[in-house]
Amino acid sequence: MGAEASPISSPCIEDVHVLVVDDCPVDRKIVEKLLLKNGTFKVTTVDSGKKAMEVLGLNDEKVESPSLNEHKIDIILTDYCMPHMNGYDLLKVLKEHSCMKSVPVVLMSSENDQQRISRCHDTGAEDFILKPLRIGDIQRLTSYVKSSTATPKIGVKRKVPPDIMPESNGSERRPCLARVAVA
Rank of each mutant, 00 (worst) to 15 (best):
V103H: 06
T123F: 00
G87I: 01
S102A: 15
N112Y: 09
H121A: 04
K95T: 09
N86G: 00
V103Q: 06
G124R: 04
N112R: 14
Q114D: 09
S98I: 07
V103R: 06
G124M: 06
S110G: 15
H121S: 00
I117D: 00
K92C: 13
G124E: 07
R116W: 03
R116M: 14
I117F: 05
Y88D: 00
V93Y: 10
S102I: 10
S98C: 03
L90E: 05
S109E: 03
N86A: 04
K92D: 12
Y88F: 15
S118M: 13
Q115F: 03
V93H: 11
G124W: 05
S110F: 02
S109H: 09
P104S: 10
N86T: 03
E96Y: 01
L90H: 03
V106S: 07
M85H: 05
H121E: 07
E111F: 05
R119C: 03
E111W: 03
T123P: 01
S110C: 12
S110K: 05
S118F: 06
M100D: 05
K92Q: 15
D122L: 13
E111C: 04
I117C: 05
P104W: 02
S98T: 12
G124F: 08
P104N: 06
D113S: 11
E96K: 10
G124Q: 05
V106A: 08
L107Y: 04
V103Y: 07
V105I: 14
L107C: 10
V93R: 14
K92N: 11
E96V: 00
L90F: 01
H121Q: 08
E96G: 07
Q114I: 11
E96T: 09
N86Q: 02
